Amino acid sequence: MGPDDEDNRWPPWLKPLLRESFFVQCKHHIDSHKSECNMYCLDCMNGALCSLCLNFHKDHRAIQIRRSSYHDVIRVSEIQKVLDISGVQTYIINSARVVFLNERPQPRPGKGVTNTCEVCERSLLDSFRFCSLGCKIVGTSRSYQKKRVAMAASDSEDSYSSSSNHRRSKSNNSNNNSNKIQSFSPSTPPPTSVNYRTAKRRKGIPHRAPMGGLVLEY
């Protein structure tokens, strides 16, 4: 599967939609109080639209973008008519089930989390693979799958190398310790000639002076 084949997996409007900036003022209807751009035409793909712009897109497929915590979402009831969203986690916001358009990375997963987004590692329920439509596009691409396989192989090699180095280091330390233990008990050197004479020499019997006990009287 080449790059062109991967692009054909998705409708032509999807990637432009994910790159678009919404909730900005419409440059064509600045004076209107309904000039906020929160619509998108799937047929024209010519950027974000306000409600007044839709008058020029009659009979076109248009969807509405909504906001949740400063992130763009779209209702499942609208998007699932034109796109396969399987594997993407859905959320209930304002009594409507929605999906997020783009990733929302987390600094760290919450405690007890057993499943995360395959792309940005956001915490997910166990039955989902991706946190957004954008992450699904990235995570299911052939190049990304190859990258994941390569990273897994690299991690495996690093783990094996680290284990081998640890064993070699442990073996070397054991040999070094053995040598050190032997050096603590050096063999007794052979006696030198000086030591030998010193060891063999014995102290003679003491003798008194011959006149030591004589008292002279005058």
Rank of each mutant, 00 (worst) to 15 (best):
M1Q: 11
G2K: 12
P3L: 10
D7T: 04
D7A: 10
R9C: 06
L17S: 07
Q25Y: 03
I30H: 07
D31M: 12
E36Q: 10
N38S: 12
Y40Q: 08
C41T: 07
L42Y: 00
M45I: 14
N46V: 06
A48T: 08
C50I: 01
S51T: 13
C53R: 05
L54Y: 00
H57T: 06
H60N: 00
A62I: 11
I63L: 12
Q64N: 13
R67M: 15
Y70M: 14
H71M: 09
D72W: 04
R75W: 03
V76I: 02
S77E: 12
Q80K: 08
L83W: 06
I85C: 10
I85V: 12
I85E: 06
I92L: 11
I93D: 05
A96P: 01
A96I: 01
V99Y: 01
E103F: 08
E103C: 06
P105I: 05
R108T: 15
P109A: 06
G110V: 00
V113A: 13
V113M: 07
T114Y: 01
N115A: 05
N115F: 00
T116C: 14
V119I: 07
F130I: 01
S132L: 11
L133M: 11
C135E: 07
K136F: 07
K136V: 11
T140D: 12
Y144W: 11
Q145H: 07
R148D: 00
A150H: 08
M151N: 12
D155Q: 14
S156C: 05
S162C: 13
S162A: 13
S171N: 10
N172Y: 04
N173M: 10
N173H: 09
N175W: 07
N175D: 09
N179C: 04
F184L: 15
T192R: 05
T192Y: 06
V194R: 06
N195H: 12
K200M: 14
G212F: 14
L214K: 15
V215H: 14
E217Q: 08
